[in-house]
């Protein structure tokens, strides 16, 4: 493996084989699935995915699976604890020569935002405390998608969800999971977007060279829950990056670095106006105020970066 994520200079460096199977029951244009596709091709099948309840639980439905490697569905709250048990068992087997080195697996938690930001946060924090050697992939579709896109602790301010249909949309603010991870001082944490495959691949390469708790927090546009055409999934991802709403960054060696700096940030409206969940914001002056608030928050964030 090359050092510091430089193997991937262009798309021609990507693996040419698609390891992840097709024909899953995910919605057309599912942004979460896109991330899993990219990650799986890079990680390969010497992995065991430990899943928390969410949309992706339906990837492995008896007797089919798109994974060439292994899989264990746990529950909504405790996928990191499942990873702990599996990792510890693999280590015990390695130490007692019941598992050969080349049979070892990378343990990967696959979780939605609802579990990651909320119910599973205690289990995640516990795994971080214990320095568990695992990869943590959170596909963030900003709501409880599997149950019909109710608001979650990852829902952005103002978004309409099944439980925030009122004028102002969701009253709360999106929690900062990246900083929560950084506060635990893990070897690695990064945000990614499937619309930036090169950035994603470099981050995967970097985290593979490290051990311990390593997170990828993936922006995951959800046509069904957010209200846009499936074909626009990648464009929504691009706009999230270009407006600065979804900063691409990593935490490594105790420092936060931004990996993509949008040169001229687009106004957040460009991102918001393409999604049904924000449509109400354009229909009233109170809604316009919320848009201004969202723009202000993004501006303040990036002022802090420069």
């Amino acid at each position: 493996m090359s050092e510091s994520g430089m193997q991937y200079r262009g798309m021609e460096d990507f693996p040419s084989t698609r390891l992840f199977g097709s024909g899953t029951p995910m919605c057309a244009g599912c942004g979460g699935l896109l991330v899993i596709h990219q990650l799986y091709d890079l990680l390969g099948s010497d992995t065991v995915f430990i899943n928390a309840a969410g949309c992706m639980t339906l990837l492995s439905v008896y007797p089919y699976t798109p994974f060439r490697g292994s899989w264990l569905y746990t529950a909504m709250a405790s996928a990191p604890a499942g990873a702990q048990g599996v990792r510890d068992a693999l280590d015990i087997l390695l130490e007692s020569d019941r598992l050969r080195r080349e049979e070892n697996l990378e343990v990967v938690v696959l979780t939605g935002d609802g579990a990651a930001y909320g119910m599973g946060l205690s289990a995640t924090s516990g795994a971080l405390d214990r320095g568990l050697d695992f990869i943590y992939l959170c596909y963030d579709n900003e709501g409880y998608g599997n149950t019909g896109q109710q608001y979650s602790p990852a829902t952005p301010h103002g978004a309409a969800t099944s439980t925030s249909r009122g004028n102002g949309g969701f009253r709360g603010n999106k929690k900062d999971l990246f900083s929560l991870w950084a506060a635990h001082n893990p070897p690695y944490a990064a945000t990614v977007s499937a619309s930036e495959p090169l950035d994603l691949a470099r981050k995967v390469e970097k985290l593979r060279s490290l051990r311990g708790p390593r997170m990828l927090l993936a922006f995951s546009p959800c046509p069904t829950g957010w209200g846009f055409e499936p074909a626009q999934s990648v464009m929504i991802g691009n706009l999230a990056v270009q407006t600065g709403i979804w900063p691409l960054k990593e935490f490594i060696g105790g420092k936060v670095e931004h990996t993509v700096l949008p040169e001229k940030r687009l106004p957040v409206e460009e991102y918001l106006k393409r999604q049904g969940r924000f449509a109400h914001l354009f229909a009233s002056s109170a809604g316009r105020d919320i848009i201004a608030e969202l723009q202000g928050a993004v501006d303040r964030y990036w002022e802090g970066v420069r």
């Binding site: 430990i50 264990l72 746990t74 529950a75 709250a77 405790s78 996928a79 990191p80 604890a81 499942g82 990873a83 702990q84 048990g85 599996v86 510890d88 068992a89 693999l90 015990i92 087997l93 019941r98 205690s122 289990a123 924090s125 516990g126 405390d129």
Partner: peptide, 19 residues
């Protein structure tokens, strides 16, 4: 672990992995 819910998940996970 940080709770019995997690403890039981880890127990199941480890047994499923063969110890």
């Amino acid at each position: 672990l940080e709770s019995e819910h997690s403890m039981m998940t880890a127990a199941g996970g480890a047994a499923a992995a063969g110890v």
